[in-house]
Design a protein around this nucleic acid. Structure first.
Lengths: 195, 195
DNA sequence: TGTACATCAGTGAACGCGCGTTCACTGATGTAC
DNA sequence: TGTACATCAGTGAACGCGCGTTCACTGATGTAC
């Protein structure tokens, strides 16, 4: 039985991570679907053939981006919702916009490829979106207001993802206005009852 | 001065239209960003070099798709809203889902490339989305309820476009449920006042 | 009417290029005993 | 401890392929007079 030393494993992990970040960097500019394996390997500073030591093809790399990096980002947003003790509209919008500010390339990948070209990648990112919806409902459940209906929480997440997409555009509306509009729409959605 | 005969013009228009439809057909499957000029020309039944008689490159073809075909679809939805005499949530959702049913490839192009890879194409499709928002407000203005605030109309369009995206997925939720959820969310948004 | 000329959509050959993929190899590291 | 062997990330050469683009050409159609 062979066990790899932790040093070798860490080095491999560094290169793998460089590939993931390179794909995000290039994909943010020209779209993930049009990325080539050689292009990503070049950006990551390895030979084209070394790509295969980490992923079978670009689709597998895309799925890793969704499962690992996007998954972590969603976890962070959910943790922030839990910490702010409630699934308020403000908390959701602020947590997501903070994620956009701290890793714009990753969030661009999330919002774009969610409706992008690869069926498998779409499915994976939509399940990340579903995790966000559940995180929102769970946080609201512990908050003062009780969990909102699934439909309302889903719509809230659609709106906040759209706000993220707009924030990430260069031609962005002033951030504060966009944030207010999004918060107010989501508050309407999450309001318990109509008159 | 030379004027082209209408027959020649019509023939050229037929080929141009074949190129647009070919791009929609192929793009629906694999994403517009990854389409090649030769691939589209082949699907349209012309030689690769003939592509240049109609468009300078794929980006220009994409912009034509947005300005012409997507523009017409938005016009049709707006007309339907006006005809139904009001910008109700139901009217909006039904008109958009009808557009998805009658030309799924076009609507897939609309909802996907709106957040896709080319900046110019995103901008063009977002202006089509803005036209939809204005159409909704204008229809509501003539209806019983008066025009909703811009923010609410924008959020409503975001939600209905998301519903379209889900409808166009193969793994679609049963259509009726999706439609009900979307209508109900949009009604919350468009409701005039909160208690 | 006929004749000479202009326009222009479509074409096929050809180009150089970057792509994804295969292959055998290197060299550092870890294991067996 | 030393020696022989296994593992495996990274490599560079090479492949065949489809790409975008250029070019000169064809042939149908329209115009001039």
């Amino acid at each position: 039985v062979f066990r790899e030393s932790s040093e070798k494993k860490e080095e491999k992990e560094r290169v793998r991570s460089a590939l993931l970040r390179a794909a995000l960097r290039l994909g943010a500019a020209h779209g993930f679907a049009s990325l080539g394996l050689r292009e990503v390997a070049r950006e990551a500073g390895i030979a084209p053939t070394s790509f295969y030591r980490h992923f079978a093809d670009m689709e597998e790399l895309g799925l890793a981006l969704s499962r690992e990096l996007v998954g972590d980002a969603v976890d962070a947003v959910c943790a922030s919702l839990r910490a702010s003790r409630g699934g308020s509209a403000k908390a959701l919008v602020d947590a997501m916009l903070a994620a956009c500010a701290s890793d714009p390339e990753l969030m661009r990948f999330f919002v774009s490829e969610r409706v992008g070209s690869s069926r498998a990648l779409r499915a994976s990112l939509q399940s990340q979106q579903a995790r966000l919806v559940e995180g929102l409902r769970a946080a609201a459940h512990n908050g003062s207001s009780g969990a909102p209906p699934l439909t309302a929480a889903e719509a809230a997440c659609v709106l906040v993802l759209d706000a993220c997409a707009r924030t990430l555009e260069d031609t962005a509306v002033p951030g504060a206005k966009l944030r207010e509009a999004c918060v107010s729409s989501i508050e309407h959605l999450l309001a318990k009852a109509q008159p």
